[in-house]
Amino acid sequence: MVGYFTRRLAAAAVVVVLVSIIAFAIVSVLPGDTAAALLGEEGARDSQRYEALRVELGLDQPLVVRYANWVANAATGDFGRSLRTGEDIGAAILSRAVPTVQLALMALAIAIIIAIPVGVMSAVYYRRWPDNLGTLFALTALATPGFWFGIMLILLFSVTLRWLPPSGYIPFFVDPLGSLKLMIMPSLALATGFTGVLIRQVRSSVLEVLNEDYITTARSKGLSRSTVLFGHALRNALLPVVTLVGLQLGGLFGGAATVETVFSIPGLGRLAVDSIFYRDFTMIQALMLVLALSVLVASLLTDLIYSRIDPRIRRG
């Protein structure tokens, strides 16, 4: 178990190094450099100021040295300053990450809470009306764009019914109830597509497991249908589901960008969108690294959970 996890960590470390190189390289190969971007078109013509800034930013040094410096600083949480706002990038990302993580986790929880019962029901009532209903629901969710669904939710619950505030953000630890009220619609919007995928996965995976020999064995022992379903089938069926959740977690962070824009949530997604619009290279660089890291952490967690469920993995 320990050996397995160490190996996974080593593999993740390799990925982090590769991602950092790519993130760094993308910004470095862009036309113009950070100094030019900071000074603007006019300012860059003043070669004295331009050169001085280049020296100040370390841009006069060879690429390898710059990369080493960047990585060394990044490792201590120092990503430099934003070209756009001048704020400290590490601090900016940290403060923006909180709403996004809350949003993603809530969306994940919603998706799981809906998808497992619906998927299991679909599989148990295979090709009968509950299955058809579940399948219709799943495909509808799958085909609904999250941002559009978000707007519809605002129309219904904020504009017409006036039950929920339409947009904004309150940190969870400041006002838990208010925070949940604000986040419930964005989470639903973010969860739509994922819920659809998850229902389909749960359904097909339960269906497959129900045809396994060990299910017949369990039934031949005289266990009731529900014991067989929940005691024997579900745990096996959840293995591929856990994998899917882990893989999709990265997608949730990505999808958060549009939902955060619709609901005016100051999260990572919006930060990324804004930074791209303003060519805030240093910020984009740091964001790429952080997002890649979060996907890696998610996949490590997935493996950890997976190995808890499936004893065959533990020995690795």
């Binding site: 396994e212 020999d213 060990y214 017949t216 064995t217 369990a218 024997h232 745990r235 096996n236 469920i309 499936d310 004893p311 065959r312």
Partner: peptide, 11 residues
């Protein structure tokens, strides 16, 4: 059952 590989629950 026939196949002891597949007739025991792996988890």
């Amino acid at each position: 059952f026939q196949d002891p590989m597949s007739s025991l629950n792996p988890v």
